[in-house]
C-alpha cells in the first residue's frame, strides 16, 4: 500500500495496475447485492441482447476505482468522497484490464484531490471512465 502525504501529491501524478473480474467475483457480487438481472447471470439472454457473454456488473468493475484510491493513489491517507463514473463499453469475465488514474486537481484549502481514472482493455480501449474525488488526511 502506498502512503503518500499531501505534500507528496502533484497534478500529473499517476498510477496503473492490472486487474481481472473472475467468475467467483461475479457470484459473490450477486450474493452480496441481490442483483440477479439476467444480463449478468444468463449468457443466452446477454447474447440475445447483443453482448458476447454475461456482462460484468458496472459497480463490480468500479470497485477497482476504490482500490486505485485506497491502495495506490494516494493510498493509506485517502478518504473517497465521490465518484462520477461512465460505463462506456461492456466488460466480460476474465478480460484482462488495466486500471489507470491521474491527479488532475489539488485543492490545498480543503485537502482534496481529483483523479481522472479509467479502466481499459489490454488493447487500450476505454471501457469505463471516472472522476474520483478524494480527501487526504495525513
Amino acid at each position: 500500500m502506498n502512503s503518500y502525504s499531501w505534500s507528496d501529491l502533484h497534478v500529473g501524478m499517476s498510477h496503473a495496475f492490472a486487474a481481472v473480474v473472475t467468475a467467483p467475483m461475479m457470484c459473490h457480487f450477486l450474493e452480496d447485492s441481490g442483483d440477479d438481472n439476467p444480463l449478468h447471470v444468463d449468457a443466452a439472454f446477454a447474447r440475445e441482447q447483443g453482448f458476447d457473454d454475461v456482462v460484468v456488473y458496472g459497480l463490480l468493475s468500479a470497485n477497482y476505482y476504490s482500490t486505485l484510491v485506497g491502495v495506490y493513489l494516494p493510498g493509506r491517507h485517502a478518504v473517497l468522497q465521490g465518484i462520477q463514473v461512465d460505463f462506456v463499453r461492456p466488460i466480460y469475465v476474465d478480460m484482462p484490464l488495466k486500471v489507470r488514474g491521474e491527479i488532475v486537481h489539488l485543492s490545498d484549502a480543503v485537502r482534496r484531490v481529483e483523479i481522472a481514472a479509467r479502466i481499459e482493455s489490454d488493447s487500450g480501449e476505454v471501457l469505463s471512465k471516472a472522476k474520483l474525488k478524494v480527501g487526504v488526511r495525513d
Binding site: 468522497q81 465521490g82 486537481h105 485543492s107 480543503v110 482534496r112 474525488k133
Partner: peptide, 13 residues
C-alpha cells in the same frame, strides 16, 4: 461540509 469541499474544488478549477 462535503458540498463546501465540492464548491471550493469546482470554483478553483
Amino acid at each position: 461540509s462535503l458540498a463546501h469541499i465540492n464548491l471550493v474544488s469546482v470554483i478553483e478549477q
